[in-house]
């Protein structure tokens, strides 16, 4: 697997896709990753289905529920990721909720993540103070990096602090919103992107939440190093299946 930081250093306009493990079918994880890689996606957010995903909108909630009904669990996810460890070159980022890691055992969880060749975690309900008090040391021990989210309401002081903690990229939440919000990017959002860009942070910036197609992706890339598409992809995948993934990705990156 290519290192995410090498990719971030080398390439601009990065496209990342979020997908839910075990969706649409339990055994689809490896195939979805492979299809995304072939389509030219730069890095992939691997979503761990959770029963109570507070930061996710209806589309990802539904896909998570379906995946859980399919029988997905963390052990199966790690097994699935191990099978593609040698063949997959596209960097993977793991996204899940803190309770999943807590219950699995924090050390065991980190070790498994590392065993799968993954170095980066996104945990939307892990607050900065808990990171400082406990998780920073834990993640350092395993060589894992944590991605922080910033929003239009995050103060400059806090963004600067997040910048110092960031070892891969900052996840710029496009709007004060849960995932899956629709529509074009507003002037207000662009002003916020400009404001963040003008701060000249050391960290790379990836925009997510509300990015769904070519126009929104292109706009996001004007202000950041790339963008993440989640709900729009899940919706497409649910309706069209794995074989058609390329048809979703190609128009966005060409």
């Amino acid at each position: 697997m290519k290192k995410l930081n090498e990719l971030l250093a080398q390439k601009e306009n990065l496209l990342s896709i979020y997908f839910t493990c075990g969706y649409p079918e339990l055994g689809d994880t490896a195939q979805v990753i492979s299809a995304l890689e072939k389509s030219g996606v730069d890095f992939i957010e691997v979503g761990l289905p959770y029963s109570d995903p507070l930061a996710d909108g209806p589309t990802i909630q539904d896909s998570s529920q379906k995946a859980l009904e399919n029988g997905i669990n963390l052990d199966i996810v790690f097994e699935q990721l191990m099978t593609i460890k040698e063949t997959n070159k596209t960097p993977l980022v793991l996204m899940g909720y803190l309770n999943q890691m807590l219950k699995y055992g924090e050390e065991k969880f980190c070790q498994k993540v590392v065993d799968c060749g993954i170095e980066t975690l996104i945990i939307p309900d892990l607050p900065m103070v808990e990171f400082e008090n406990h998780y920073q040391a834990l993640f350092d021990k395993y060589g894992l990096t944590n991605v922080f989210l910033i929003t239009p309401n995050t103060s400059e002081e806090r963004i600067r602090k997040i910048d110092t903690y960031t070892k891969t990229f900052i996840y710029v939440v496009a709007s004060s919103s849960i995932t899956g919000a629709k529509g074009a990017i507003s002037k207000q959002q662009m002003d916020y992107f400009k404001r963040v860009k003008a701060m000249q942070l050391k960290s790379k910036l990836i925009i997510g939440f509300g990015i769904s197609d070519k126009p929104t992706f292109t706009t996001a890339c004007d202000f950041a190093d790339g963008a993440i598409i989640g709900s729009a992809f899940i919706k497409y995948l649910g309706a069209n299946g794995i074989e058609k993934i390329t048809d979703f990705i190609k128009p966005i990156i060409t």
């Binding site: 959770y50 109570d52 052990d75 803190l98 309770n99 807590l102 309900d125």
Partner: peptide, 21 residues
């Protein structure tokens, strides 16, 4: 229940072995 996080708080909650509530 066992120790876990629900609705933004660390507390005791009913969950399965994978932390699903």
């Amino acid at each position: 229940g066992e120790v876990g996080i629900i609705h933004g708080s660390k507390t005791i909650l009913m969950q399965d072995e994978y932390g699903q509530i």
